[in-house]
Design a protein around this nucleic acid. Structure first.
Lengths: 266, 266
DNA sequence: CCTACTAAG
DNA sequence: CTTATTAGG
């Protein structure tokens, strides 16, 4: 079995003060993908930076306190790589991948965007550069006899079932038609990846993975499913279980996102 | 009797959440002078902006969240003026005065400074501009048959008894020789004001009015006396009592400064 | 609303 | 250490 969890921690230092380490201690995952670390390695307490029993790898953003992805693995990876060959984004703390036996696992933090602003243009540039990489990655992995799993905060809800108020959000970043279409391409024949959670739960609403801190979004379950495990078909077929930890195992919420876990047969 | 209190609140919004309003409700003062309000009037809850039973006047800084002085009076003043005729400082939220029957009361927040930096130059420019104003204010008030009381955070400890570790602080802003000499001029014959608390307690160490939030300054009583009530001699002679509220009446500390109160005979 | 940053104290 | 700011989410 291979168990993988992905979670946007919304600031690893803050999360660690609110229960992240207790959650991690109770996790049975083999690999944990983190997004929005928002810290350099040397800003993290040792127990947070490299928890006992884990190998930890970080891809911080050049801008202090912004973005940042990480990977925790129980077994040492064969290789770890930062970025996806983009001059603009490789130093932005948004993509990190590790080769484990038979599978490449990546931690992705796609830009959030904001409709009608330069940050939406940035998101679109990221999407434009990342789709061909995903296609090439799948081809490369297939040639090597490997599977691929790209976990993270994709900052796009794919379909109407993936967010609470889809009608009101059709003009908001994260549910724009062009964003949904782009994610459709990721899951389409040419690119060829599978949405692991949706494949196992095709009729379910959500499960949501993010609830804004504004208003009473969490209490009202006004959530979005924007965190995904995106797998090559051979790996997706081996998925036996997938779930979102809406209620943290240890009391309070330590992020505005919830951990998304998938279990794969070997 | 006229009772006047001055206190640097270090952010009125934060102070209000920690006990300032409860302290004010227990105050017997006729006039309260506030410094470091750090808010526009419209950023303050109504109960904080204009507490019941008080007339409230504000002189905010042009830079949001910086400096800012205020005056609370139980009786409506005859007049209220912002600034002291300085193009550089009148919009900086550092000086506000009100005419009450027979006395002009001012709330002053002198720049903090930092030795060897441009902020120390700014402090020195303020001092250079403010001393002649104090002299003129006294003359003008005398001609009108009024007394003057300039209350506030002067950001200078006058003598060795006015801070805990004077030896270690001789090169630090707030106890530099030129700053001490300048305050000596305020209290000297040419300018002619009196340090009300020191006049009533000539032999006492302190009483300190500020303890840094850094380290354990408050617990160790490593304080400075930098908040003063500075009066014309006729008013200073009427002072019957003066004290510093090191322990807030209502439990916890709501500022790094303590209220300084003086009671004057009519 | 929340987490970072930075300036100021 | 604490208060604000701003940017980003």
């Amino acid at each position: 079995m291979l168990t993988v969890t992905t979670v946007n921690v919304n600031g690893l230092r803050a999360a660690a003060k609110k229960g992240y380490l207790e959650w991690l201690a109770g996790s049975a995952a083999d690999v944990v993908c983190l997004q929005e670390v928002r810290a350099e390695e040397d800003q993290l307490p040792e127990a947070v930076r490299a928890p006992a029993g884990w190998h930890a790898f970080y891809a911080p953003a050049a801008a202090r306190g912004r973005a940042g992805v990480a990977l925790l693995t129980r077994q040492a990876p064969e290789a770890v790589r930062i970025g996806f060959g983009s001059a603009e984004f490789d130093g932005s703390g948004r993509y990190l991948e590790a080769d484990l036996p038979g599978v490449t696992v990546a931690s992705l933090y796609l830009p959030s965007g904001e409709a009608g602003t330069p940050r939406q243009d940035e998101k679109e540039r990221f999407m434009a550069a990342f789709l061909p990489y995903l296609t090439a990655l799948r081809a490369r992995a297939a040639a090597d006899g490997r599977e691929v799993l790209v976990c993270g905060d994709w900052n796009i809800a794919h379909r109407e079932a993936d967010l609470k108020n889809w009608r009101a959000n059709q003009t908001r970043a994260g549910f724009l038609p062009e964003e949904r279409a782009w994610l459709g391409e990721v899951f389409g024949d040419a690119c060829g990846y599978t949405d692991v959670v949706r494949a196992l739960h095709p009729e379910q609403t959500g499960p949501y993975t993010w609830w804004s801190y504004r208003g009473r979004a969490f209490d009202n379950d006004a959530g979005w499913r924007i965190d995904y495990q995106v797998a090559t078909p051979g790996l997706a077929k081996r998925a036996v279980k997938a779930y979102v930890e809406r209620a943290a195992s240890h009391g309070e919420r330590w992020s505005d996102h919830a951990p998304v876990t998938a279990v794969f047969d070997r």
